[in-house]
Design a protein around this nucleic acid. Sequence first.
DNA 1: CCCTGTGATACCTACCGGGTATCACAGCGA
DNA 2: TCGCTGTGATACCCGGTAGGTATCACAGGG
Lengths: 288, 288
Amino acid sequence: METRELKYFVAVAEELHFGRAAERLGMAQPPLSRAVQQLERRLGVRLLERNRRGVALTDAGEVLLREGRATLDAATAAARRTRRAGGADNLSGERTRLVLAVKTAAAHELLQELLDAYAAEPDAAEVEVLQCGMCDQEARLRDGSADVALMHVPFNSLAGFDSEEIMTENQFAILPAGHPLAARENLSLADISDVPGLPPARWPRHGIYPPGPGPEIRDQTQLAQLVALGRTVAAVPDSARAWLWPEHAAVPLADAPPVVTHIAWPAHSRSTALACLVRTAVRLASSR
Amino acid sequence: METRELKYFVAVAEELHFGRAAERLGMAQPPLSRAVQQLERRLGVRLLERNRRGVALTDAGEVLLREGRATLDAATAAARRTRRAGGADNLSGERTRLVLAVKTAAAHELLQELLDAYAAEPDAAEVEVLQCGMCDQEARLRDGSADVALMHVPFNSLAGFDSEEIMTENQFAILPAGHPLAARENLSLADISDVPGLPPARWPRHGIYPPGPGPEIRDQTQLAQLVALGRTVAAVPDSARAWLWPEHAAVPLADAPPVVTHIAWPAHSRSTALACLVRTAVRLASSR
DNA sequence: CCCTGTGATACCTACCGGGTATCACAGCGA
DNA sequence: TCGCTGTGATACCCGGTAGGTATCACAGGG
């Protein structure tokens, strides 16, 4: 099975429309139809149900969409990492460079400490910090844009990665300063899940937003502004206190699950620079 | 990057010889040379060092070998799982079939209980048990031959999989019955690591055998026989008591790390049958 | 000094991936 | 009822390229 065919199938499966998929791929529709048919023939499996008005995925198609995306990610990651290994690093003794994906503005302090501690290591590599939106450190790690990431369980999923736990925090509720609930000593998740006129913010889980009335959040600035405007409420980890606005109020959440920050990297990574960074992070965690 | 090119490169990187690699791939040597050159050109990176007598991997080549294997595994897994999803399952209401990879003869009892408990579930699928050698449940899971596996940390690595812990056991030393050490009440790892005439057995870690004087073990029968013959000694988990021979002696190991059995599956798997099996396993674990 | 074994090059062919033009068909509105 | 529209499939052509064979260039070793 060639990655070309896989790319084509994934495009069609995502668009559920040959014409649009072909356009997205920068090609004409007929060869795309043919390529997908050929893939079906090769696998001996019907992937798409063509009902005269559009296209639907079969069960097998669902499977291939999921597994195919993973395969394509693996391929682009392989290419990217190989290029990086051969490009800067090999020539003229330039040092290995590590790309660390972080959720923008999450856990500043920890990040700062980690970078400082790592820089002090004798064989430290240069670390480039790649800032991500609410949840796409996972994707960056999977497609090879990053070598290592700081992830926050349960917001991120560690599935498919190696990881070490480095910090646990409680959560608090972030509310508009003037709101009645802001005066409370304590809140529970139930208290903030159904406040009239203050729908809880939603962020993507595995790339899609859960249903609900609240606004869809892509980054923390957006969240900060919406809370300040009195449009939403959210649960955030302690380290978020660093970026609170005067218009915000913070109230401890008694029953929210703790947020556990992990340092995560692609399974089977074997770079010594990475191993050193992880070691530093673990040491830091145990000394806090 | 096409899987074809990747397959070619991996073959060459493994053989370190274009001729043999070409033979293994069932093609002539010149087009293989050309394909690898083209891959190097496309990536803009030198992958192989051709010194007139054979071939060596560059650093970038090492990276691509590792990542490329992962990509190829993902691709074959995608094809296999898609075929399975479309083949038996979709037609005529036949039930989903789960393939469970286990280390042959490891943790019988647990396996038996798990299969029984799962079969009693209302929406249980048929479970096929795939018996593996010492350590290749990981490979089976990665290449799509299996959907789920019982793995034994620290013998197996869970890197890249989702998993749940279901059993913890201590280890004991398994020795020839007549051996002086067999009379001891307790042993330590140090005691059995350097016994004259009784080199400790070795099994593969990530596909390769660690160096040492002891015999290379592929399955438990082999180990059993070698111990009975007075050729080797090994540390094995408690559940292995089930298959001890009269010629064997078992002595508790005070300082060996516990063996933790996990149920593991490919990250992001979403089959309901699998979820049910995992739930059953976890329930079983907590009730033991 | 030639023979052997290595990977690279030259050149040809056949296949196939991609394009354009067109078809077959379902739904829909006049 | 008859086009009209939008869908994916088919027919056919062309060029690039994957693969083959023959050969080269070169390092080591007898």
